[in-house]
C-alpha cells in the first residue's frame, strides 16, 4: 500500500535531509519510491517541503496532494497542510514552534518539542531528526534500524555527524508526551 509522506518546514530546518534519509532507507529496503522537493524561491528562506512516496508497486504520480503522513516543523506549513492530510492519517509536528489547533478528529496528531529538545541536548539543527525518530515510533513507515543504516550511509563516514543524528533519532523515538 502506498505510503505518501509530506515533510514541511522553513528552509534550513533540514527538511530535505530528513526526507532523503527516509527515501534512502526505502531504497535499502528495495521499495519503489519517489522523492520530490519544492524548488525555487520556496527553498531560499521561505517554506520548504518534500514529498516522498514509498510502495511495493511502481510509483505513478510522485505528487502528494493529500498525504497519509505529515511531518511539519513550522506554523505556516502546519496551517497550509493540516487540512490536506488523508482521513486516518498521522501528523507529527514540532510543538515548540507550532500551536497546533485543528478541529479534525479523523487524523492522529502528535506534538513533540523537537526544537527545544535539540537545544537542550546540544543538538542544534537536529530537530528534524528528533521529529523523524518520533514519526518512526508513531507510524509503520519504516523501521528504526533501517533509518539508522540510511543515516550512516548518507553521512559518508563522518562519525560525529552519525553520532549526533543517532542521538537525535533516539531522543525522538523515546519521547512520550
Amino acid at each position: 500500500m502506498l505510503k505518501d509522506i509530506l515533510f514541511a518546514g522553513f528552509g534550513g530546518q533540514g527538511i530535505q535531509f530528513c526526507s532523503k534519509v527516509v527515501a534512502n532507507a526505502a531504497l535499502l529496503e528495495n521499495k519503489e519510491l519517489s522523492w520530490l522537493p519544492s524548488y525555487g524561491p520556496e527553498m531560499r528562506g521561505g517554506t520548504s517541503n518534500c514529498a516522498v512516496c514509498i510502495d511495493d508497486e511502481p510509483i505513478a504520480s510522485p505528487l502528494v496532494s493529500s498525504p497519509r503522513y505529515l511531518m511539519v516543523l513550522n506554523a505556516p506549513s502546519y496551517d497550509k497542510f493540516i487540512n490536506l492530510v488523508q482521513p486516518g492519517g498521522t501528523v507529527i509536528y514540532d510543538s515548540s514552534l507550532i500551536n497546533a489547533d485543528t478541529e479534525r478528529s479523523d487524523i492522529d496528531v502528535f506534538g513533540i518539542p523537537a526544537t527545544r529538545m535539540a537545544n537542550d541536548n546540544d543538538l542544534k539543527g537536529g530537530a528534524n531528526i528528533i521529529a523523524l525518530g518520533y514519526m518512526i515510533k508513531k507510524t509503520d513507515i519504516l523501521s528504526l534500524d533501517i533509518i539508522k543504516t540510511s543515516i550512516e550511509k548518507m553521512s559518508k563516514g563522518r562519525q560525529q555527524l552519525i553520532a549526533n543524528n543517532f542521538r537525535a533519532l533516539q531522543l525522538g523515538y523515546e519521547y512520550s508526551e
Binding site: 531504497l27 519503489e32 519510491l33 519517489s34 522523492w35 520530490l36 510522485p62 505528487l63
Partner: peptide, 10 residues
C-alpha cells in the same frame, strides 16, 4: 520538465 529534473528515484 522541472519536476522530472528535480525529483529523485531509484
Amino acid at each position: 520538465d522541472g519536476l522530472l529534473g528535480q525529483m529523485m528515484e531509484p
